[in-house]
Design a protein around this nucleic acid. Structure first.
Length: 116
DNA sequence: AGGTTGACAAAGG
DNA sequence: GCCTTTGCCAACC
């Protein structure tokens, strides 16, 4: 099980009409504190992966090498019922994927600060 | 085997 | 709420 496989496996679990952040996908895949790795894995993803359901923590579509992919991702999400703001932003409060139903993550991630 | 990059995230002003 | 700085680690060359 490579990191890419683990991350792509999580992305596949994102239900239709919902979105997940890079950080959420990364930590669910067992790679907490590495949201960039999620994006890196998506680069190697095929069309078989719902890559369009992954956005950044701000709820916006992260631009990449292909500028056409940005409106494309928005179009794909809107087709699933995901709504965008006038600032091209998604309300994560409503469309963020809840893998466990609770606001608490399934895996316990280590704290960044020793004293909190 | 080492330095730099990267589809990001959290904290402070 | 937006912008800037800092962190983080695997993948890339």
């Amino acid at each position: 099980m490579t990191s890419h496989q683990a991350i792509l496996a999580v992305v596949r679990r994102i239900p239709r009409g919902r979105v997940a952040t890079y950080g959420l996908v990364a930590r669910l895949a067992g790679y907490a504190r590495q949201p960039r790795l999620a994006g890196y894995a998506l680069r190697h993803a095929d069309d078989s992966v719902p890559w369009h359901r992954v956005v950044n923590a701000a709820g916006t579509i992260s631009p990449r090498a292909d500028p056409d992919s940005v409106p494309l991702q928005q179009s794909l999400l809107e087709a699933e019922g995901v709504e965008f703001d006038h600032r091209y932003r998604i309300d994560l409060r409503r469309f963020l994927w809840r893998p466990r139903g609770g606001h608490r993550q399934a895996v316990k991630q280590p704290k960044r600060s020793p004293s909190g």
